[in-house]
């Protein structure tokens, strides 16, 4: 093994470890939805290469309004799927799409893009 081989090997392994840590082991924080004037738990979510915030906390039994603003044209995020609530919606680029739901059960429910690559969670407490 010459020097460049040792460097490439160490660099490669280091990069692989970084990839695993960065994508799988990073800690994410939840954001709670706030009550709006009509008594709904409301939260604005920006869709740009993912959902910000991607973990949303809401209370059980109270209506929730999710306002998805798609801040990109990437086709990956054009569809939103929220199977717990049987929703499949198109998110037009640079527009806000309002989704109203009523969480009747406690638990963690995932919402994803059409191809299940981008992910977010709704924590119902």
């Amino acid at each position: 093994m010459d020097t460049s081989q040792i460097l490439v090997t160490l660099g490669g392994i280091g990069l692989a470890v970084f990839v695993v840590w960065y994508f799988f082991l990073g800690k994410r924080t939840a954001q709670a939805a706030a009550l709006n004037d009509s008594g709904m738990q409301e939260i604005a979510i920006t869709v740009k290469g993912g959902y910000s915030p991607d973990i949303i906390e809401v209370e059980q039994g109270k209506p929730v309004r999710l306002k998805f603003y798609r801040d990109e044209t990437s086709s990956c995020s054009e569809e939103l799927i929220f199977s717990e609530f049987k929703l499949r919606r198109d998110l037009p680029a640079f527009e806000t799409t309002i989704i109203d739901i009523l969480p009747t059960n406690k638990g963690t429910f995932e919402f994803t893009c059409g191809m299940n690559m981008l992910r977010g969670k709704l924590l119902v407490r």
């Binding site: 994508f23 990073g26 740009k48 290469g49 993912g50 959902y51 990109e72 990437s74 191809m115 690559m117």
Partner: peptide, 19 residues
């Protein structure tokens, strides 16, 4: 262009996709 922009945006979210 879309692929690079999208890859960058997803990277910031600690996710990765096709792009």
């Amino acid at each position: 262009r879309e692929y690079y922009v999208s890859a960058y945006n997803t990277f910031l979210h600690r996710t990765a996709n096709m792009d």
